[in-house]
Every structure is written in structure tokens, then in C-alpha cells.
Amino acid sequence: MSRSPEAAKRQKIQQQQKRINDRLGLTTPYCMSDHAISRSDIHGLLADGEWHSTTEINDAANSTEGTRRLRELRAAGLHIEGRRKADSPQHEYRLAR
């Protein structure tokens, strides 16, 4: 029985999130804090490979510390690209493919 492409994508994201949590030492339920949930939500946002603004990332994190969670994802080994938006002080980010 084959899985749908959406189910396969969801499973791949869950596996990546587990590896991230393991690299950051988040191995117990107690460690799965709001920060870990925010990282997971940001990773889910970036998983589409499209560019996302800092506003979108902060919204996904439900805080103004979305870029901090983004740095934690980078520290855990994800390759996240960043660039400055044209004619704007804003930056945007995406998960490299």
C-alpha cells in the first residue's frame, strides 16, 4: 500500500523535527517546551521551500522570537537561506532544498 505524497511529506518533516530535537538535546517530554513547538512550527512553514518574511516566521512561532528559533534550527543542522527583501529593511528565509 503506497502513501499519499502529502503523507510522505508530513512523515519526512516529522523525522527531520525529531533529528533537530535530538541534536538540541530535547529528548524528554519536559524538554518539548514552547520553544520546541515554535521550532517545529517554523520548520513546517519553511518546508515548502518558498521565501518567508520575518513577520511570517514570527507568526508561525507565535512570538517575536521567531528568528531566534530560526537560528536554533540552523544550529541543529538545517540549511536555511536568508536574504534582504528588495527595497525593504525586512529579511526573508527559506529552507534550502
Rank of each mutant, 00 (worst) to 15 (best):
I37K: 14
G77W: 02
G44E: 07
K12D: 06
I37S: 06
S38I: 00
H35E: 02
W51V: 06
G44F: 01
Q14F: 04
A7T: 11
G82Y: 03
R68Q: 09
K9W: 09
S33N: 15
R84C: 10
T28Y: 03
Q17W: 07
K18R: 15
M1W: 14
G66Q: 05
C31D: 10
I57Q: 01
A47N: 12
E65R: 15
E81C: 08
R39A: 01
L45E: 03
A61K: 03
A36R: 05
I57L: 04
L73C: 04
L73W: 02
D59T: 15
I80L: 03
S40Q: 11
A8M: 11
S88D: 13
I42M: 02
S33I: 01
C31N: 13
A86V: 11
T27Q: 10
A47P: 04
L78C: 06
I37R: 13
R69I: 00
R74Y: 01
I57E: 00
D41C: 11
I80G: 01
L46C: 05
N58K: 05
R3V: 09
N62D: 05
R74F: 00
S40D: 08
T64Y: 12
G49A: 11
E81K: 14
H91L: 09
K85I: 15
Q16S: 14
S2L: 10
D48N: 15
A61M: 03
D59M: 13
A7I: 06
A75N: 05
H35Y: 10
R97F: 09
E50W: 07
S2K: 11
S33E: 04
R68E: 05
R23M: 02
S63P: 00
A8L: 13
H43V: 08
N58H: 12
G66T: 05
G66F: 12
A7S: 11
E6K: 13
M1Q: 12
